[in-house]
Design a binder for these strands. Structure first.
Length: 272
DNA sequence: GTTGAAATGTATCTGTCCAA
DNA sequence: TTGGACAGATACATTTCAAC
């Protein structure tokens, strides 16, 4: 695993804590996660009125955005293989979907499959500086409730060894403002997606294979962000977590944008 | 305080999957 | 083909807690 060098400047990303990349699909490569975060960042900047320079179009149906290729963190790509890595990660993202399933008492299944990035591309002959990403409204609407945002350390997301750690880091960060919070074992399994899969039904297995290694991983980088302590009393389902923040983050810059307001310098297409 | 059962923690092994 | 990550099972050690 890559060792993070101690630097003062950390790059933070605000991510809606109700909308986790850890929940959708089991296998995300690091580059797919990274591109997801960068796409997310463009949308977040737009919705908090920080920047709309990368928004090509916006309607009630979808949002179309530019992802500047030259601003991507080159250290995450293989040398001289940026374009190929980018294509592979984009292809991976194009296959990601949100799956919503419900089972009624009478045995009937309800379902909805939504592609997260139905149109993602890069055409250097047209625009060599930007990738184009189109996101349906049903996806980006899940991204925008600003009051639910928490700030994630981008470097940490790229360094964590497993998806379990990333998802738990997101969960811990979303509760970090509380300092102390409790959650039932099965509720935590649901958040991690294990409940539906039926995995880790016993606490000792869950603790040994998921929680403990993830907390150890997160705490090994505590100087950049948070340190996690937890306790589960015998016979109780409740797990008590204490989150210690070692590096304060500035939340004051995040503001809520009223979507009914007109956007200054609007170049967006409106729904007909 | 002692005891013993139950719960929990830890170490280790096997098998699977995936990327290099 | 190989090595690493991970899930799951098992055996054994340790801790907890209620009953006495």
């Amino acid at each position: 695993m890559e060792i993070v060098k101690l630097k003062d400047e950390r790059e933070l990303r605000a991510v809606n804590r109700e909308f986790s990349l850890g929940e959708y699909g089991e296998s995300w490569t690091k580059l797919e996660r990274y591109l997801f975060i960068e796409i997310y960042n463009v949308i977040k900047d737009f919705y908090i009125s920080r920047s709309d320079e990368n928004i090509k179009g916006f309607s009630s149906e979808s949002i179309l955005l530019n992802l500047p290729v030259n601003k991507l963190d080159k250290t995450l790509f293989k040398k001289s293989q940026l374009s190929r890595d980018l294509m592979n990660a984009s292809e991976g993202l194009s296959k990601k979907q949100i799956v919503l399933k419900t089972l009624k008492d009478d045995g009937q299944w309800g379902f909805r499959f939504i592609s997260m990035f139905p149109d993602i591309g890069y055409d250097p002959s047209t625009d060599k500086n930007n990738m184009i990403v189109k996101i349906p409204s049903s996806i980006y609407e899940q991204m925008v409730p600003i009051e639910s945002y928490c700030q994630l350390d981008l470097k940490l997301l790229s360094v964590f060894g497993s998806g379990n750690t990333i998802r738990l880091y997101e969960i811990f960060k979303s509760y970090a403002f509380k300092k102390l919070f409790s959650i039932d074992f099965n509720e935590l399994r649901k958040l991690l997606g294990f409940f539906n899969e039926g995995s880790y039904q016993e606490w000792k297995h869950f603790n040994a294979k998921v929680l403990k290694p993830a907390v150890k991983d997160i705490n090994s980088h505590k100087q950049y962000d948070i340190e996690v302590f937890y306790e589960k009393r015998r016979g109780l389902d409740k797990i008590s977590f204490t989150i210690k923040t070692h590096r304060a983050q500035d939340l004051s810059k995040i503001q809520v944008l009223n979507l009914n307001e007109s956007i200054a310098g609007s170049r967006y297409f409106c729904e007909s």
